[in-house]
Structure formats: C-alpha cells, structure tokens
Design a protein around this nucleic acid. Structure first.
Lengths: 123, 123
DNA sequence: GTAAACCCTGACATTAGTGTCAGAGTCAAG
DNA sequence: CTTGACTCTGACACTAATGTCAGGGTTTAC
C-alpha cells in the first residue's frame, strides 16, 4: 500500500510516517516511480510505534528494540526492560517535581485566599 | 551594579539576565558607555523572577504581575490568583498523564518479569 | 489531454529558556 | 600603553515530533 492509505489506516500523518522512516523505524520499498510501498504488516508496525511513543519513548529508543519486538514477545528482547525501567525512573522523578510545585502553588493560593479574607474582615 | 555582579549575587547567568530584560521583566538604566546599571533592588527582583520560573510560569505570565507583586503582597494583585489556578490545573493534568504512563509501564515491566519466570520454569 | 488526487524532497517553524560564540567596545591596573 | 577582565549586540544551537509550504513528478479517470 502507499503512504496515504497507511496514514488513513493508522491515523498517523504522512509527515510522521516519513519521519519514522528517516529515524530508521520503518523501511518501505520503493516503486519504480519512487513512491513508498508498504507491506500489509506495516500497519501493525506503525501502531506499535505509536504505542511506544505514547509511553514517552523516543524514536531512538524505539529503534533499539522495534525489530525484535515485532518478531518476538517483549520478554525476549533484552533492550526493552532497561528502557522501561529508565523511563519509569524519569517519570517518577518528573511526578515528584510536579508534586512539589503543586504543593507550593496550593500553599500560595491558600495564603492569598486567607489574606483576602483577613482584609475583608478589616472593613 | 553591573550585570556581572548581579549575576554573581543571584546565581542567574548573564545570558538569562539579558533575556529577562528582553522579555520586559527587568529594565536597568544604561550608563554612558552602554553598560546596564542595576539598582540594588534588582537583586530581590531577579530572585522573585527565579522563584516564579521555578513554579513553571512563563516569562510572559510573570511579566503580567511582577511589577505589582514587587510593590504589594501577592493578595493585592488580581492577576496572580487566576494564573496560579491555571498552572495548578495544568500541573494536575500533567501528573494524571504521567501516572497513566507510569501504570502502563509498571504493568508491562511486571508482565515481562512474569513471562521470564515462566520461561525459566520450562527448562 | 487535462484536471484532480496522489506522491516526492527539502526546508522552515514550532516551544522557551539557556549556552555559546564572534566581533567589537570599555575600563582598570600595572 | 598594554593586557586582562568586563561589557555590548547579534546570531545560531538545542530538544523532538509534527505542521506546513514550495516546487515538482505521477497516476487515474474522464
């Protein structure tokens, strides 16, 4: 199938499909006219890419194990577990940071509200 | 004081101080030679900017209330509360998203570990 | 044969704050 | 008067995936 059809089937923009190719995630053959020709299997492949991107992995990380996981279960691909763990770590750090900011904001909001009530009472 | 000294006092890079000026956050006077001349009060001002940036606010948002909060308590500055609330909202949304990804990752990690134990058992 | 609907490559924009460099002017101490 | 430390402006880089446009080829259906 050509790129337009794959885009429709997967919901991934043509622009992104070309980008994935550039990043080495998917390699369609080329027709004589230079058009990309994707195998039917490409649909599943793109959906996998989408899934991993949604986990916050980079195209570079995905490239490191995609070929393996397309052929095997994830558990057989040694690269996957450390990447998952690293990502989990990053996410937890990020959540912690956001929670700190959240607490700070909540305190500040409360403090403003308290102050405004105090002021009201003065009149 | 000149920009180098302010940078030392605040821990904010010279580059960033110039950027803050460009964003309208701080406006030093210029000496005859074109050098920026900061008032002693600028130190506190820059520390405030730093604080608000650490809350995740943009320079544009900070510009919207900085002059007010430098002269009054935050509670007197109407712009502050809605910005805090908006930011809090964004943060909570972001935390929710990260928590979803986190759960997904944890499930996948556990699933891989389970599978590997199963495989071990087969030999 | 022509118009519409495809496809191609290459390039720039986006975010937002910071690092860094180049080329040039200024100033203070020796 | 020279050297080193400071300052100035302007510009490009960065991150990372995606949007979008320009300028051009191809194919299909009428």
């Amino acid at each position: 199938m050509k790129i337009g059809e794959l885009s429709l089937r997967t919901g991934v923009s043509i622009r992104s499909l070309r980008y994935y190719e550039q990043q080495g995630l998917i390699t369609p053959v080329r027709s004589e006219n230079g058009y990309r020709e994707y195998s039917p299997f490409a649909e599943e492949q793109v959906k996998s890419i989408k899934l991993y991107l949604n986990l916050g992995l980079s195209t570079e990380q995905i490239a490191g194990f995609l070929q393996c996981v397309l052929k095997n279960k994830e558990a057989f691909c040694q690269e996957v577990l450390p990447i998952y763990r690293q990502k989990l770590d990053e996410i937890e750090t990020q959540i912690q940071l956001l929670n700190n900011i959240k607490s700070n904001l909540e305190e500040r909001i409360q403090s403003i509200l308290d102050e405004q009530n105090t002021i009201e009472g003065e009149f």
